[in-house]
């Protein structure tokens, strides 16, 4: 049981990293990675939402959709759950934990449309994870996202002072360096844990 959890966690963070191996959540990965501070904020928000969404979507799937034979509605139902969940969490934090709300800032509502969140809940279903496994996969998937975005933000902060051909100015150099970072993560692929 424990080994299973650990292999899921390590797999989500390193081997099947959401950004570098599964190419989910690329949009916030490129958009929010110009500074390490904002990248960290985005990362924390994603960990938070992915963990919660995994838990709630597992319940919705297993106690509502599967018994009624409505598995084909999963995508639609999960989007509904994620969107309302993010809204709710935003309101809750604004009232109860203003400091966390201020730290997450605009990133919370942005996550509503983050495909990594939808990806994690759909993968939970695909891999037939139980409740605990789903939550672990959600949280560690978010941690993997955070690792990737923080690494990439620190790379980008250095790129700003680097000399590269003018035609690579802006997004091209970012995409090239993201590709190289993904190559580095490919070193983990095929690794077997336990």
């Amino acid at each position: 049981m424990l080994t299973n959890i650990i292999s899921i966690a390590l797999g989500a963070i390193l081997i099947n990293n959401f950004i570098f191996s599964q190419f989910l959540g690329i949009c916030p990965f490129l958009g929010c990675s110009s500074k390490v501070d904002t990248a960290t904020g985005m990362g924390i928000a994603v960990v938070f939402v992915m963990g919660l969404a995994s838990a709630i979507c597992w319940v919705v799937d297993n106690y509502l959709l599967v018994p009624l034979g409505l598995e084909f509605l999963e995508t639609l139902a999960f989007i509904l759950v994620i969107a309302s969940l993010v809204q709710f969490v935003e309101m809750f934090l604004k009232k109860s934990v203003p400091s966390l709300y201020a730290a997450l800032g605009i990133y919370l509502p942005l996550i509503t449309t983050n495909c990594a969140v939808l990806g994690v809940v759909l993968l939970n279903v695909q891999n037939t994870y139980n409740f605990l496994e789903s939550v672990v996969y959600g949280i560690t998937g978010g941690l993997g996202f955070m690792l990737a975005i923080v690494l990439f933000a620190s790379v980008r902060e250095r790129i700003r002072f680097a000399e590269y051909p003018e035609c690579f100015e802006g997004f091209p150099i970012c995409l090239v360096s993201a590709g190289l970072l993904a190559l580095a993560f490919m070193g983990f692929s095929g690794m077997q844990i336990f």
Partner: peptide, 13 residues
């Protein structure tokens, strides 16, 4: 199911 879920989430929000 979807209308109930939608209505429920809407009401909660």
């Amino acid at each position: 199911v979807l209308s109930v879920m939608g209505a429920l989430f809407g009401a909660v929000l």
